[in-house]
Design a protein around this nucleic acid. Structure first.
Lengths: 254, 254
DNA sequence: TAGAATTTGTTCGTATGTATG
DNA sequence: CCATACATACGAACAAATTCT
């Protein structure tokens, strides 16, 4: 129960109480919380006080408030590992969840300065552009644009359309294996279009990653820009001692 | 001035002109550009035409457009590498920039469930809490809270107060070397307090990282939660730290 | 705290030039 | 030469977000 003698404001006490209950499984991810009026009755406070608490929980990303529908406990974060072997379908399968992709665009375009720099090809050179939404358990988690040098990956469009997998499409073009060279991560607010694709409000931030994949000879085969729904995704960087020592030279480890 | 006889469309000429001016210091990183109306007057075109140019500059990552506020030159992003050896002072020094820290809190507290789980100690066990702002060239980059098991790191508070460096303070406690075990990355909106510390508006997202550091025997020695100003910082995960790759989408860094 | 002023965002409509078939 | 499609450019009005008084 809330206390008026406590130094904490009442709305904060309510927020903490609800947070505890979410932590302890009273309310589970995806559940609808009781209505504001119900909670107001329970805590013996005005509905405005409950609203203040809810608002703070939303800021913390713990709940999602939807006008006319209700308030819902934020669904659990999906860990998305970033490392040398970053492959969507495989990652999600290993978590025993259901991966899927929705193709948005697949066409050949000319490399703008950014793409040309990251793929190490000349400006205006033809590149294959693939844009797709990554879905886990029917929830969109990211929307990504991939660029591949068209000279080497002319068949990508057809291959991706049939397999809906970058890894498979690359294999069809003769790339048996590849690895992530670098990943740059920033946080931005989504455009309306991206928010729509991710089925999230424009008021929640997204994680933007820019990545470069290379083949085993070190040649760039893909440059990609992805936007992750940060409410549902968490990027994870883990060090793997085995891989580091056997594959990568790290002077500081010697 | 723009030319109607030029083969390039007017909006592209305007974008190029503004890009040149940003490159030449007419507008510096963080500056507010003239309003769309002002630029429309200057170039003697309709506001739509200026907007088309602005939109292209935003796609290139050169400006940030904020409804109701204005358009601002993108400040230079500091690459912050995430890897086995993630050490603030060293990282910034290597970039020939000036690192600094501001201590906010240094005290001994009891481990809450999250801290105890991540440090692998029992709930309520004493831990050393350090909260500090990381500053580069007098601009705040991140605000971080570090937790260390008090049993082993009693001297951390005093050591950190004198050195203002986690690495140095750990060394004073007998840890000669350590490495990053894992880093989890999400994007959130900052609380007012964090926004104040980072000197940024509450409307711009922050990158939140949760990290665990271990000593060379694999025992957890630190659990940390950091908030990075995403407008000034870009987290970078590279598979080969030797190879220095050009920054993506930030032409000014070439 | 309420409202005015400022600035970007959106949606109409209109007109013109260019490439294609 | 014509029809169509598309990109470019201008004008006006209003919506939405922010800042300032």
């Amino acid at each position: 129960m809330v206390s008026h003698t406590n130094t904490d404001p009442i709305w904060r006490q309510i927020a903490s109480t609800l947070e505890d209950e979410m932590d302890n499984g009273v309310y589970r991810p995806g559940d609808q919380l009781p209505t504001e009026s119900t909670l107001a009755q329970r805590f013996q406070v005005n509905r405005h006080t409950v609203r203040r608490a809810m608002s703070s929980l939303q800021e913390l990303g713990r709940v999602q408030i939807e006008q006319g529908r209700g308030t819902f406990v934020q669904s659990e974060l999906i860990d998305y590992p970033i490392g040398e072997r970053t492959r969507f379908t495989q990652i999600i399968n290993e978590k025993k969840r259901l991966p899927a992709k929705t193709l948005l665009r697949a066409e050949q375009v000319r490399a703008d300065p950014t793409v040309s720099r990251n793929l190490g090809i000349r400006k205006g050179a033809p590149v294959v552009l693939l844009e797709a939404i990554s879905v886990v358990d029917s929830q969109p988690i990211s929307v990504a644009t991939h660029y591949h040098p068209a000279k080497r990956f002319e068949g990508m469009i057809a291959a991706f359309k049939t397999s809906l997998s970058v890894t498979e499409a690359l294999k069809a073009c003769g790339v048996d294996d590849y690895k992530r060279f670098s990943t740059k991560i920033t946080a931005t607010m989504p455009t309306r279009q991206i928010a729509t694709h991710l089925q999230q409000p424009t008021t929640r931030p997204v994680l933007q990653t820019e990545s470069i994949d290379v083949d085993m000879d070190g040649r760039a085969i893909e440059y990609g820009v992805s936007y992750f729904a940060s409410d549902r995704t968490q990027l994870v960087v883990e060090s793997d001692p085995l891989e580091n020592h056997s594959v990568i030279k790290r002077p500081e480890d010697q």
